[in-house]
Computed example of a mutant assay.
Amino acid sequence: MPIRNIAVGRPEETYHPDALRAALAEFISTLIFVFAGEGSGMAFAKLTDDAANTPAGLVAAALAHAFGLFVAVSISANISGGHVNPAVTFGAFIGGNISLLRGILYWIAQLLGATVACGLLKFVTNGQTTAAFSLSSGVGVWNAFVFEIVMTFGLVYTVYATAIDPKNGSVGTIAPIAIGFIVGANILAGGAFDGASMNPAVSFGPALVSWSWENHWVYWAGPLIGAGLAGLIYEFVFIGNSGHEQLPSTDY
């Protein structure tokens, strides 16, 4: 069972050169992702004179996040695993695929990367606001909470199926684009309701820089629960108890 594989890790793991390199990769890839994703929203707001969200703006956000995450995962996959998301790191920990101490190191790097990205955006746009995630009119806190659980479950399940599963075979080569696609698709589904974060770091950076924390807990609790469920289910059902041979690719 995955619970047996959960490990705290050794203290020296937090300052081992490989762990520090992995943390730096997470910092850089998260910075790149948040700068592109948050920056696209700020650019659209400037071009439309801060008009309310429109279908075109939603599509633009989905594309920017999908492309940005594809690149961010690709450039860090061989160094840190390309998490770029505290929820993905938590899901990997719950499935026994990363130690607690290394996961905390990743969390620190991811949150710092998102914060630096938003700080840079505020500077280069001459003080334009980095908008914190918020609920749309008519959307309740618990609606958004469930939205974040379901969307992040889909994201982390995709990560497991394409990147973590040792039987992924040639599917592993498309992991970054599959992960980017599911995030873009989820933004199209939930972006008009709660912003579709699926990533506590993406929520934390703008909230800290703009100092806006209303309903911020939703963007931590929902993604972490969704990620934990995905990690448990995939690791227990499809990895931990799998005794069958993978189907030949010609059978798909």
Rank of each mutant, 00 (worst) to 15 (best):
S134G: 14
W213V: 07
I187K: 07
W107V: 02
I32C: 14
G68R: 01
Q128H: 05
R10A: 14
D165I: 05
H216F: 05
S242K: 15
A175L: 08
P17V: 03
S40D: 04
S249V: 13
N78H: 15
P166Q: 04
V209L: 02
K122L: 03
S203D: 02
V34Q: 00
A201S: 01
N78I: 05
V237D: 13
A62Q: 03
V84F: 08
G68T: 02
L31I: 05
F181S: 12
A77D: 13
A207L: 03
Q128S: 11
D18W: 11
Y234W: 12
A66T: 07
V150S: 07
A64M: 03
L155Y: 13
S212Y: 02
V209Q: 00
F181V: 05
G154F: 15
L47T: 08
D194I: 05
H216S: 09
A52W: 07
Y160N: 10
F238D: 12
Y160F: 15
S80Q: 06
G226D: 10
Y106F: 13
A175R: 05
F67R: 04
A87T: 09
P2N: 04
A227W: 01
P11G: 04
P248C: 04
G9I: 12
L135A: 07
G127S: 08
N85Y: 01
G96V: 06
Y234R: 03
L229Q: 11
G226T: 13
V183C: 13
A163S: 09
S40R: 05
S212L: 04
A51V: 04
R10Y: 15
H65S: 14
I177C: 02
K167D: 14
A163M: 07
V84W: 02
A87D: 10
V116C: 01
A109F: 02
G243W: 08
G154L: 15
S197Y: 07
Y219T: 09
R4Y: 12
H16V: 01
V202C: 06
A92P: 13
A117W: 00
A87Q: 07
V71I: 08
Q128M: 08
A25H: 13
N53Q: 12
Q128N: 09
S249R: 12
I233T: 11
P248I: 05
L188K: 01
G138P: 08
T125I: 00
S242W: 11
E214I: 05
T173S: 12
G231D: 03
F90C: 14
F35M: 12
P55D: 06
G231N: 04
V159G: 01
